[in-house]
Each structure stands twice: as C-alpha cells, then as structure tokens.
Measured scan of single mutants.
Amino acid sequence: QVALSRTQVCGILREELFQGDAFHQSDTHIFIIMGASGDLAKKKIYPTIWWLFRDGLLPENTFIVGYARSRLTVADIRKQSEPFFKATPEEKLKLEDFFARNSYVAGQYDDAASYQRLNSHMNALHLGSQANRLFYLALPPTVYEAVTKNIHESCMSQIGWNRIIVEKPFGRDLQSSDRLSNHISSLFREDQIYRIDHYLGKEMVQNLMVLRFANRIFGPIWNRDNIACVILTFKEPFGTEGRGGYFDEFGIIRDVMQNHLLQMLCLVAMEKPASTNSDDVRDEKVKVLKCISEVQANNVVLGQYVGNPDGEGEATKGYLDDPTVPRGSTTATFAAVVLYVENERWDGVPFILRCGKALNERKAEVRLQFHDVAGDIFHQQCKRNELVIRVQPNEAVYTKMMTKKPGMFFNPEESELDLTYGNRYKNVKLPDAYERLILDVFCGSQMHFVRSDELREAWRIFTPLLHQIELEKPKPIPYIYGSRGPTEADELMKRVGFQYEGTYKWVNPHKL
C-alpha cells in the first residue's frame, strides 16, 4: 500500500502544474464570482478556492472578487462561507491571508454602469489591468444573457486571457439551449467557454479513460460480442427537503440524466481518441451522441416518491408533501431510460440510465454486464461477469466473477477481482471535483468540460421526450421513500436483457 498525506498529494500536483506551459504561476489572475451571495458560491466555490489557495495550487498573485446585487462586505462573505471551509486552528494565518486577497463589488446584473465599476475595481488591483480574468457564473440561467453581454462589453482583460465558467442547466430543451449557446458564442470563442459538469471532475469518471485505453485486457472485450448491457446509475437517499420548488422546474431527467449520466455513457462508449488533447476527446464523445436516436417512450419509466409510513423524519414525507412543490405536480423524481448506440461496436446493446431521489442508498456507478459463458459445464450455477466502476461513495473498480467454492467439488461461487483505489492508495485525500475543474480552467484544459456541439446532441436525444411529458403530463409511478424505485423499472431492465441475480454482496474494501 502507498500512504500519501494531503501535503504529498498537493506537492505532486504542484510539480505537475508548474512543469506545464499552460499554468502561468507568476502571472496575476483575477477570479470573479458572479452571484457571490448565492448558495453555490457559499457552499462550493469559495470553499474550493480556499482549498486550492491553502494547498498552494493557485497562481501566487490571485485575487478573488465577488459580485452580486446584495450590498455585502468581505466580512459578510466570510461569515456565510467559512463554515464550509473546514479550516483547522493551525490554518488561521493562512485564512487571514486568503481573505486579504478577497474583495466585493455590489451591482445589478443588467446595468452597464455596475460592470464599469467592477472593471475599475479590477484595474485598481495590483497589475489588475493586465491580469488573466476568470469569470464564474454562479447564477440562474435567466440572467446569463445580460451578464455575459455586460462582461464582454465592460470587463474583459485587454492583455491577459479571459475565460468564463457556465453552470448547468444549459437551457431547458434543445431550442433554449441553442439560443443560449448562440448568444454566448457570439461574445466569446469556444476556447474561452467552460460549461461545467462537476461529474466530469470526479476521480473515477476520469479513471474510465485510463482503464479503457491503457489496459490491453479490456480492449478486445469492450464491444457487443461480449457486453450484454451497460447500466449507469445515480441514486440519492434523500428527497427534495424543502427545495422542491427549484427541482420541480427541471425534474430528474434535466437535473441528472441528460448531463451526468449521458457524459458517463460517452466515456464508456467512445472510441479511442487520437490523443488526450481536449478536442480529440470531445470529438469522440460527440460521435457517440450522434449514434444515439431520440428516446422512445416505451423505453422510459418515470416515478415519484411517496412517504414511507414506517419511516422516520423526512422519510415519512412524499414529494408532494414538500411545501415548495406545486400542488398535484407530476414532475418525476425517478427515471429509467434505455438508449442504444447504433454503431458497429455497440449495435443492440442497451445502455440503461437510472437516477432518482429518496432511494435506498447513495450511489453513482457504471456497471457493464457481460454475456453468459458459452457451453456451460457447471449446471447453470454460473452468474454473469460484471465490471463495476463505483464513482461514489467509496470509489472502487471491481470485476464480479466466478471462482471455485472451497471444498471437494467443482462448485462455482461469485467473488470479485478488486482493482480499488483504496487498497493501493491508503487514506489518500484526493482533490474534489470542483478543485480539479477550476484548476483545469486556470490551465486552459477543456477536456472535462462540455463543448457546444456535445451539448446540442445531448438535448436532441431528450427534448422530444421532455416535450411529450410536458404536454401529456403522465402521472409518475409512486414508489416508497427509501425503496429501490418503481418495480416497473426493474421490469424494463429485465425486458431489454439485464439479469439481476441478487445473490452477490459487494464487500467494501475500504472497511476491511
């Protein structure tokens, strides 16, 4: 086992960053958080920038500027975001240094004079007029057009580079997404736009490419001749908990499936790229999406959770019991969808996408189930092999396979070949997804960000279904809070070829 401390991990990262040409360590950078008073800024962006600063992973002359409508001070920003920093008493001095680099400007999102004030403020910072500028839009999409237009007109660096990070949702359907994309691309070049999907920053999602293309053993079996089906799962054990009003506007397909799960599907299904260059990788992902037809209604199961009468606390409440959810809402909190990649490698292999709230566990994984062994000599005792990439929690890679049961006879039983990170790298604290992705933006690497043509294809696949749901308002199937979801989803999976045995229990190697 390799035991690495946080300091050692960050030392390795620093070495990698400083050796590259793309990370300008000594240049002045300004990180501007648009929507600095909001939840995302408070819980994710400010803490992430602090962790990067604490670990010495930001360029040395980096300033952080918050911008929002609320009249706040840096002290206010500190008060609301610091509880999420997880700072230790030993880091007190470092924390003071961090907040000394912070400033805040209040202004409207659609007022040109406010942006001119913001620009004057940035120019007044040390070497601010020639600094590289990175704008993070932690804002609702309704203000994107006004904000990007004003940034472009008043706040661009004339000497350094300018980059803009856009948070999902990128529209509600193909038409609104196209409108937003066309607007942003009329102001910024594609190499300046970073559409963030934080799932692409997760260690195991990034590991998929290495697993596939750096190991000879997987190449020959990664196709329709050997793989019976692919299941991509995202499960949350909690409901909307008072935030249903926002969720109800989008629903589970827009929230998770059309982005996170579809991105994971691309990494499983794509061909080997010409290189690890950002556009070479994204070219292959677009090719996969172009091979997927629009979702067919007979390959869809929609569910909505109801309270568990035997549960406790939140578990007793259904989705419609959330006071922020519109009365009688038919918005799905669970969806199972089957897609097919219609190309030579994957023809006929079902890709089953499942996601839901208020389920029995927290889990995100990719599961490849292989065909049955031909010419069975073990009297149907063999179960199908599976390769599982567990994204969260407890990152893991393992192969479910058959071995001989101890004893006199040739009785096979299920076991696993474990390729888990935790076994080799004991207690290594890896940077989280937002840390990686923000560092990628500083480096100018777009590999783990969504390109406009990729986004367009993703919406093309799901828009007809979303429009049909909005028009017909089908009643989702009720499922109990804390269950596996509607049984109809299991029946759909069985119908397209997935075999669920229920006889195997994964042993978490992190707890051995």
Rank of each mutant, 00 (worst) to 15 (best):
L465N: 02
D376T: 08
L466H: 02
Q468S: 13
E312V: 12
R367K: 01
K383R: 11
F442P: 00
P326W: 06
V288W: 01
K290W: 05
G356D: 01
H379A: 15
Q381A: 13
D283N: 11
P412W: 07
P393F: 01
A315C: 11
A364N: 03
Q446A: 07
R282P: 02
P323A: 15
R495N: 09
I352H: 03
L455V: 05
P350W: 01
P393K: 07
A458V: 02
N343R: 05
M402A: 11
M408Y: 15
R384D: 00
L455D: 05
L261H: 05
V268E: 02
I469N: 09
V295P: 14
V450L: 07
S329R: 04
R354W: 03
K317P: 09
V428N: 12
L387G: 01
Y305V: 07
L387S: 04
P464A: 10
V341W: 02
E470A: 13
H448R: 09
K400V: 06
E312H: 14
V337G: 13
R451S: 01
K290R: 13
K317Q: 15
V450D: 03
R390T: 07
Q468T: 11
R345M: 10
R456F: 07
E413K: 11
L368C: 08
K494I: 12
V349T: 07
A358P: 04
Q263N: 04
T333Y: 04
A336E: 15
R424E: 03
G318E: 06
Y319M: 00
I477C: 11
L437H: 00
Q381E: 14
G328Q: 14
N423R: 12
Y481W: 10
R495M: 11
G307L: 06
V325T: 10
K505I: 11
V337T: 14
L353V: 08
T276W: 02
T487E: 15
R327N: 14
P406Q: 07
M447P: 06
C355V: 09
I477N: 12
W506I: 02
L302G: 03
V366S: 00
L261D: 00
V300Q: 11
T316D: 08
V349M: 06
S415E: 03
K272P: 09
D432W: 06
E361K: 05
L437I: 07
W459Q: 01
Q499W: 12
S483N: 08
K494V: 11
N385K: 02
E314K: 09
E416A: 05
T330V: 14
G356V: 01
Q392L: 01
K287G: 09
T399C: 14
L471Y: 12
E395K: 07
G407W: 06
R282N: 02
L320I: 09
L302D: 02
P350C: 01
E342V: 12
P474H: 14
K404N: 02
Y481Q: 10
T316A: 13
L430A: 09
G485R: 04
T330A: 14
S275R: 07
V337L: 11
L289K: 01
L471V: 15
D322W: 04
G318W: 01
R254Y: 02
A433F: 04
A315W: 10
S278F: 08
V300T: 14
I377W: 10
Q392G: 13
G497L: 02
D279E: 10
F351R: 01
V338W: 06
R362T: 10
P406M: 06
E416H: 06
G444Q: 07
S445I: 08
E491P: 01
D279W: 09
A269T: 12
V301D: 00
L320N: 10
Q446F: 01
Y479T: 02
L455Y: 03
S415L: 01
K429L: 12
P326H: 06
I352R: 02
F498V: 12
P474F: 10
L439R: 13
T331K: 04
L492M: 15
H467C: 09
K287P: 01
Q446N: 03
K287T: 07
V450Y: 02
N385Y: 01
V341K: 00
A358T: 02
G311C: 12
L289I: 14
P431D: 13
R282E: 04
G328R: 11
P486S: 00
N259I: 04
V268C: 11
R436V: 07
V295G: 15
G422K: 14
D280W: 07
I480A: 14
V450E: 04
T330N: 15
D372H: 09
Q369D: 02
Q304G: 00
Q468M: 11
D283K: 04
T503M: 13
S445G: 14
L439H: 12
G375S: 14
G502W: 07
I377Q: 07
E344T: 11
W459E: 02
E435I: 08
N343W: 00
R484I: 00
E414M: 14
Q258A: 07
A433D: 02
N343M: 06
V450Q: 06
M270A: 08
P412Y: 09
L492V: 07
F498N: 12
R456K: 14
N360G: 10
E413W: 12
V268A: 09
V349K: 00
E470W: 08
V306E: 14
K317Y: 13
D347M: 09
P464N: 12
A458N: 02
A269N: 02
Y481P: 05
D490R: 06
T420S: 15
T276Q: 11
V281Y: 05
V441D: 04
L339M: 12
L267E: 01
P326C: 06
G485F: 04
C266S: 13
G422R: 15
L492D: 00
P476W: 01
R456A: 14
L265T: 07
E457P: 01
K287F: 06
H260L: 01
T403Q: 08
L302Q: 10
C443K: 14
T333L: 02
L339F: 08
T403W: 07
E416N: 04
E413R: 08
A396W: 02
Q304W: 01
K287R: 11
N277M: 13
K405P: 07
D376P: 10
L465P: 05
V441N: 00
T403C: 13
A332N: 07
G348T: 06
P393N: 06
K357A: 01
G485S: 04
Q446T: 08
V391N: 04
V306D: 12
D418Q: 05
E395Y: 03
F351T: 02
A374C: 09
F498M: 15
V281K: 04
N259Y: 02
D347I: 07
Y425C: 07
L339G: 06
W506P: 05
G422H: 10
P412H: 09
M257C: 13
K363E: 07
G482E: 05
L262C: 08
